[in-house]
Structure formats: C-alpha cells, structure tokens
Design a protein around this nucleic acid. Sequence first.
DNA 1: ATGTAAATGCAAACAAGTTATCATTCTGGA
DNA 2: TCCAGAATGATAACTTGTTTGCATTTACAT
Lengths: 222, 222
Amino acid sequence: MNDAAPLAGTGFIKGLPEQLRADLLARGQRRSFERGQIIQQRGDLAREFWYIERGSVQIGRYGIDGRLTLFSLIGAGDTFGELAFMGEFPRTVDAIAGTDCSLIKIGDGELQSLMESNPVMVRLLLKTMALTVQEAINLVESSRSLSVPQRLAQALLQLCGNQDNGAEVIAIQQDLADLLGVSRVSLGKALTKLQAAGLIEPGYGFVTITDRAGLKRMLASQ
Amino acid sequence: MNDAAPLAGTGFIKGLPEQLRADLLARGQRRSFERGQIIQQRGDLAREFWYIERGSVQIGRYGIDGRLTLFSLIGAGDTFGELAFMGEFPRTVDAIAGTDCSLIKIGDGELQSLMESNPVMVRLLLKTMALTVQEAINLVESSRSLSVPQRLAQALLQLCGNQDNGAEVIAIQQDLADLLGVSRVSLGKALTKLQAAGLIEPGYGFVTITDRAGLKRMLASQ
DNA sequence: ATGTAAATGCAAACAAGTTATCATTCTGGA
DNA sequence: TCCAGAATGATAACTTGTTTGCATTTACAT
C-alpha cells in the first residue's frame, strides 16, 4: 500500500525543500486552540491554510442530526485547509481541536506567491493532490471491503505514524468510532479483538500499539 | 450540494475553452472497446488519459477475492486516467467498458505541453482535483449517513445527468449494487422502494426516472 | 481524600445487510 | 419460433452492527 497520507492533511508541505518550508512557516501567524474549539466551519469563505505545530485536529462534518463524520485525525507536522484554496470554494469540512493545540495560520496569498515564484511547487501540489484523491479512494474501498477490526488496525497504524511498538495513539473510543463510521459499541468489540490477538492494549483515552507488524498482517491477509 | 462530478472522471476537460478542447481531442487517437473489455488495469505504468466519446466506462477495483468495488460509472464527455499523470504513479484503479464504447486516447505529452504553454491550465487542474477530493469525501459521508434507497436515489440522479423525467439510466442491478457497495438483494429492495414511491420504473438493464424532483426530495429530508 | 464528569464495559433487543438458492422473466440470435 | 444465457424477483437463515440503558472505572479539580 502507499504511505498513508491522512485524507485531509495532504502534507504537501513535507515535500518542500527545508528552506522554503521554514520561510513559509515563518510568514504565518501562531494561534492556540483549546480542546473542542472550532477552528474552521463548513461554509466559511476563508482560504488560508493551517500547519499543526502541536496537538491534534479532527477533520470531519457535523450532520444535520448533530452526528459527526470524521474523515481524519491529524497531528503535528500536518497541514489542512489547502483544499478550499485550490478548489476556490468555501470550506467543505469542519475542523475541531482534538486536544489543546498550537497552529500556524498561513494566508492564501503566501501560497499563491510561492506557487507563482517557484514552478516546482506546481508539480508538488498536483502530485500531493493526486495522492489525496488516491487516499480518498482507498478510504472508500476500505470501508466497503474490510471488517471493523481490520479498519481499526489500519486507522491505528496511520495514527501512530512511524513510531515503534509501545507508541500510544491518543484518542478516545468515541473519536475512533466516528473516524471509522461505526458505533462505540462496535468499536469496543473491535478493540477487544485486537487486544485478544495481542496487537494492542487499550487504555483510558489512548491505545498502546504492542505489535505493529501484527496489525499490518491483519490488512494483508485477505 | 455541488454539481456531482463523478469521482474518477474529474472532467477537467469541460473547463477548457472550446478551442483548446477541440485541439486536444484532435490530437488524440480513437479506439473502440467491447462491453466488458479492460481498458486499464491497476498497476499499469501508462500515463495517457481517455476521453469518452460514446458509451460508458466503469471505474473501480477488483479485490483479491474477485469482488468489484465501483467508484463511478462515467459516460460520454467524461475523462479518466489523468490521475496517474498528475501523481506520477502507476494506475491505481481498473477501468472496464460498461457498454460497447468509443474512446479517445490522449498522450501524457499532450497534456504536459498544454500545461506548460498555458498557465491557466494549472489552476484548472488543481481546481478539478480539489473537486474530486470533495466528491470522494461526499461519497464517504453518504455511505455512512444515508440509507441504501437514499444513496440509490443519489446515484441515479448523478447518472442521468441533467436529463428530464423519462430519462433511462442504462445499468444492470449488479453494477448499481457494486457502485453503492451493497449486495444485489439490497439493491433490489431499494429499487422496489423507490418504485413504490413512484419515483422510478425499473426495467431490464435500465431504470427509468419518472420523478426527478421526488428523488431530490429524498436526499433533502434528513 | 473526595466528588464529579468523562470514558469505558457490558448486555439484550432490534435493524439492516449478506449469502445462498431457486424460480421466473426478458432479450437476442439461431 | 424457440432456445440459451442473462437479468431479475423472492425467500430464508445468518451475520454484523445499532440502539438503549446501566454499571463500572478513571482522571482531575477541589
């Protein structure tokens, strides 16, 4: 499979040369949000994008019934909000602070001028956008063809990044359930299964990964 | 909601000025495929893209178990295959002729040179890619929050485009089921429901839309 | 230490979708 | 006109996931 870029945190910024990235971030404006606070809302006309310096952010949609559909949980080093810039449309998802966090807000003008002054940027943007589309397609396929425990394994692998065994994924069960699009009950059962298989150890507000390779194996086997 | 661009047929070509589009298509190469024939396969290194002149194409993935996950059914005027070009990676989906069809194959070089000679192209490409991501996000949300009959209504509306009542959507139930990611049994039940509500009339190999407005209403009501 | 709110665990009734199987209907070609 | 294959309709057992309600555990602030 590919390197699991989170759906709404294209992370194009990671592809930038060190110098450019530092410049871009330096031109941004640091802001803090408390857990649960709304960072952006569906329908907003703003086109700036955000870099996560510390903490985590939930990207999703509140339905009319108040139900939350999470598309991704992103963390330090990820970016979000560039879609409205590229697409020239209002925000189409809500972003909520998953923990207390510190973000850097970068104006769309900065990105615009970077794009114009640096032709390599265009290729990079196109490429990361294409990857995002792929990621979205993978998401659709996963949710159709994998079992809940498998999808949980997939999500946990993505959330812990490249960390070794012993890594802790900070998320309450309700958030993981919203991310997978299942009820908390189903998520609980899936956690129990992975635990029984010795792959994870559920905690209070976090999940400890005890067997990364085992989680990966779950996805490979059909 | 937005104007339902099909997931894998970004249709950036529709945004091109008339003249440019004609030029681009003229430089392509016409090819025919019989129903069921494979047009492109996951893993292929090719980077050209395709314009559908006549007929329909299924975009999806064959799972290891031989199961098909359809992401979209696209038709005349749509394009597909540009993602591999932008992302610089091998094909990530399969394309199968849904009916006998006539396609125009356009080399990646053509797109490349168009991009270089015409800076507006970049904006257009980024914009349509952003729309595709949105479409994918909508797809995920729909499949989580809507019932099967509602999703069927949504799919039928998309497939019949802007046609009036009386329009026929050409697709067998199995294909519609693969598109929605449900079994044929469930799809049949959903068809029956929409028929009972007087919104559609199922046929043999097609579905007639008898009440477009009614279908739309189904999506609005929570 | 203690109280409180949040998070988790658990169980039963219920709803929705799948699988498997078989009968029936439709279409197009011989 | 008739036949064969394709598509549809229908049914029943089964699996999976949801909903609801409540008990228990944990973390944190006072």
